[in-house]
């Protein structure tokens, strides 16, 4: 796991600090019901310092509820969580910059006056506002009332508000919601840049593409349960798909069925898509088929996208 050292002038200190602290956020057996619906069901999660952690799941899978619980605005039925290896408190939340669902601000206040409230609570000087408002391109509109903002501007103010005072942890819930393509691009780059500076980021999203582009680690949620978690790299490579084709597709399919490393194979047009266990290389498949007297006219390893993997996981569940 990569460890980003924030304070390069004194790396030794930071290292010790890191070793002492096992997790930024630790969630154990979190459960929350809404009536008979299990919004969050026995959910566990560990987020370490420096990770850009994607919380991925379809709408209504419990991402926002989970984040709401660890931010103390939703009371869980069961389970516990710890921030910075300590019992959660209002003080620990002051080291976290978080947005939840829609941007939440006082409609009658301007951007600057809205930022004064979290800044006062966290004890951050007001002179940081210019920096964060410029980062999200809202500086020219800083004195306009929040209620006059478009959805995209509201979203950008929400991002500005979590950045004030450079918090140790950022929680972003669907941060690119309502933004135009240009805005989405800018915000994703901003998140990556802040992450590369060592800030731990927890990003909830239903967009696989977003998680794939931005995050280092991912947990997949579905109906309140965690289906999978690991590094994005791991998710990408734990099984592989090989494309094959030959003049005699029937014989090829029969031969593949007898090969040990094959999990499943499907026909896609002229191609046979063969899912093989991790570690099985196209060479081995080819050597096996030659032994069976089958000559291939196409052989290619296909990198699997997180999206495919995600849908696979969802299908396995249902």
């Amino acid at each position: 796991m990569p460890v980003n050292l924030q304070n390069e002038s004194n790396p030794a200190n930071e290292t010790i600090h890191y070793q002492q602290m096992s997790f930024i956020l630790q969630i154990n057996g979190l459960t929350k019901y809404y009536g008979r619906i299990h919004a969050v069901d026995q959910f566990d999660l560990q987020v370490s310092e420096g990770q850009i952690f994607g919380l991925l799941g379809p709408n209504g899978s419990g991402k926002t509820t989970t984040l709401g619980i660890v931010l103390d605005i939703i009371k869980p039925a069961r389970g516990s969580y710890r921030w910075f290896d300590a019992e959660p408190s209002a003080i620990s939340r002051r080291m976290i910059g978080a947005t939840l669902e829609q941007p939440v601000f006082y409609p009658h206040l301007s951007a600057v006056n809205n930022l004064r409230i979290p800044a006062r609570i966290k004890g951050i000087p007001f002179d940081d506002f210019e920096r964060v408002l410029k980062l999200v391109d809202l500086y020219p509109r800083r004195d306009d009332k929040f209620r006059t903002y478009s959805l995209g501007m509201k979203q950008r103010l929400a991002i500005a508000s979590v950045l004030i005072g450079k918090p140790r942890v950022l929680i972003l819930d669907e941060p690119t919601n309502g933004l135009d393509p240009q805005g989405i691009f800018e915000i994703r780059n901003l998140i990556k840049r802040i992450g590369s500076e060592g800030t731990t980021i927890i990003l909830a999203s239903h967009l696989l593409d977003e998680v794939q582009k931005v995050c280092s680690h991912v947990a997949v949620m579905h109906r309140g349960k965690k289906l999978f978690s690991g590094s994005v790299e791991e998710v990408l490579t734990d099984s592989e798909t090989i494309e094959l084709s030959s003049a005699n597709p029937g014989a090829l399919a029969d031969a593949l069925a007898n090969f040990d490393g094959v999990i499943s194979s499907t026909v896609e047009g002229r191609l046979i898509l063969c899912r093989v266990r991790q570690g099985i290389s196209p060479d081995e498949v080819n050597a096996f088929l030659i032994g069976k007297g089958i000559v291939l006219n196409h052989l290619r390893r296909r990198q699997k996208s997180l999206e495919q993997h995600f849908f696979e996981i969802l299908q396995q569940q249902s």
Partner: peptide, 17 residues
């Protein structure tokens, strides 16, 4: 109504405060 109580709590005010 405006959910600003959430903003207050998330920013680091306790419910008591």
């Amino acid at each position: 109504t405006y959910h600003t109580v959430r903003m207050n709590i998330i920013s680091g005010l306790s419910r008591y405060q």
